[in-house]
Amino acid sequence: MGDPQLQIGMKFRDFDQFKAAVRNYGIKNRYVMNFRPNDSTRCKAICTRGCPFYLWASLMTRGVSTVQIKSGHLKHECAKEHKNRHVNAMWIARKYMEQLRADPSWKLSGIMQAVKLNQNVEISRLTAYRAKSIALREIDGDEATQMASLYDYRLELLKTHPGSTVKFRCDDGIFEAMYVCLAPLRAGFLSGCRRVICVDGCFLKGVYGGQLLSAVGVDANNCSYPMAWAVVNKENKYNWSWFLQLLGEDLNIENSHGWAFVSDRQKV
């Protein structure tokens, strides 16, 4: 599909695969293709420059989705294109998905240069931005979809880490906070870490925002040891009290004797 060699008699799974192959052929050879007519039983690919090139494809038999190229003229008599509308944001995102997965900070100028060198097509900065956004959304996941799967996430954590504490707090069905303390981390802290707990919070960037509250210990090698964290709607006394109360129940802290808490405090 990266460099299809189209021939009369070729078969495709369906019309979508046929049109994808024609688009890839156009991108590879720097031609822009149109599909007319284009319906559920037939599809004709033609060159936008009006040259004799065409491919006529239709269903092999009625009731079967397999598509075959029945006839065509496979030679172009027009000049090649330097701008190709088939090289859109969705196509670029799929083409360079793995590069963006390896380097999410890939600059827009780098994407534009890669498309120009590899495809001989110039794209705008806006197209590169949209392609990167689509790819990162596919890699990281959509935030709305992830928020809708929080209860499934809780069940999966309890299944894979028995004895863990995963709690939600809602107000009239609206999500407000989530607390997580995994059983292996809790057991490791109680059995081999010093009785020192560092607490802090930071902003969360994204559609929903909020704050991330965390509690981190110190192990025998003076390294950070995460214990528990919570996602809350905002940083205030009520949310900190809720977080520390659950942390105290998990660590069996009945009084402050023998424990040290460290916080940056700042202005509050």
Rank of each mutant, 00 (worst) to 15 (best):
P4I: 11
Q7C: 00
G9L: 09
R23D: 14
N24P: 05
N29R: 11
R36Q: 09
R36D: 13
D39V: 00
T41Y: 15
I46A: 05
I46Y: 11
T48Y: 09
C51K: 08
F53C: 07
Y54L: 04
S58G: 13
S58Y: 10
S65L: 00
Q68P: 00
I69M: 10
H73N: 13
C78Y: 04
C78W: 07
E81C: 12
N84P: 08
R85Q: 10
I92L: 13
K95D: 04
K95W: 00
L100A: 04
A102W: 01
W106M: 15
S109I: 14
Q113W: 02
K116H: 13
K116G: 13
N120H: 15
V121C: 15
S124D: 02
S124Y: 00
L126D: 14
Y129E: 07
R130E: 07
L136R: 07
I139K: 03
I139H: 01
E143Q: 11
Q146C: 09
A148S: 13
S149A: 15
Y153V: 00
L158T: 00
H161K: 09
P162I: 04
T165H: 08
K167P: 01
C170W: 13
D172C: 04
G173S: 06
G173K: 03
A177H: 07
L182T: 04
G188W: 01
G188P: 03
S191N: 13
C198R: 06
V199S: 03
G201L: 00
C202V: 03
C202Q: 05
G206S: 06
G206T: 02
G206R: 07
G209H: 04
Q211N: 06
S214Y: 01
S214A: 15
V216F: 09
A220Q: 12
N222Y: 13
S224N: 09
S224I: 12
Y225N: 12
Y225P: 08
M227K: 08
A228W: 03
A228S: 14
A230H: 03
A230Q: 03
A230E: 09
V231D: 00
W242C: 09
I253P: 07
I253C: 09
N255E: 13
G258I: 05
V262F: 08
S263G: 12
D264I: 04
